[in-house]
Nucleic acid binder design. Sequence first.
DNA 1: CTTAAATATGTTATATTATTACACAGCGTT
DNA 2: AACGCTGTGTAATAATATAACATATTTAAG
Lengths: 130, 130
Amino acid sequence: MQKQETLSKNQKIILDLIEKSDQPLKAYSILFDVKKKGINAPLQVYRALNKLVKIGKIHKIESRNAFIACKNSKCQIAKATVFSICESCEDVTEIHDHKLSEHLRDFKDNKGMKYNKYNLEFFGLCKKCI
Amino acid sequence: MQKQETLSKNQKIILDLIEKSDQPLKAYSILFDVKKKGINAPLQVYRALNKLVKIGKIHKIESRNAFIACKNSKCQIAKATVFSICESCEDVTEIHDHKLSEHLRDFKDNKGMKYNKYNLEFFGLCKKCI
DNA sequence: CTTAAATATGTTATATTATTACACAGCGTT
DNA sequence: AACGCTGTGTAATAATATAACATATTTAAG
């Protein structure tokens, strides 16, 4: 049985918003949207975002400074993320590819690093934009 | 025969600085350092950085908003980057692993995306910090 | 059940990262 | 000479993120 995180009020509001969008949201756009719910300051948003990232409910798209919900219920910790990003329409999809994940999980360099996390972003053009 | 890019004055100054550091530099730290060379404004730095990224002389470490020189002379275009990042000391190394690159280059999802670029960042602890 | 630790909130101010807009210079092409 | 392209310089501002402080709430331990 996995530990079920109990989310706080702000965390719930913000996760809710991100889960309703199938595309990544930016912190200040989230802030704008949750002002009607009484969240007024950037820091309130960033605090919730950081927590949600930490527990794996959302992921940060580093190259875009944006946040997307993780659809994979098994993904309790944000330690292995792969995204596909269309450079024309900016559509982002999370990729779950078993073979690729295996490869990345098993990767060893020759520097003696101990890895516990990775993030991979593929860029290109989606079907619509080709 | 590869096209040999001719760098402009600002581009040379900034590439020079980044190449002398074996660790990633941030834009405003670069700005601070090149003020003595007559580069006064952020935009001058960002313009040079963008060009250098485009031609593959440097790479951006997306999760750190920092820029590092590419040591691989063959890497003329920044289209396939893999980094190892120590989360304790922030040491960054570019990884060139043939088998991994092959895997990433050949990756196909089932959405019909046409990829032309990827960026992979591994996080963990380096030998010193374990 | 109460105290201490950990987590979350709210607010103000500020730091850091990056771009827009405008004017102009240098160079190669047609 | 006129044009397109790339680069420069400057000022202003936008966008992203954190520091610092005061207080509240939840959790876990004694």
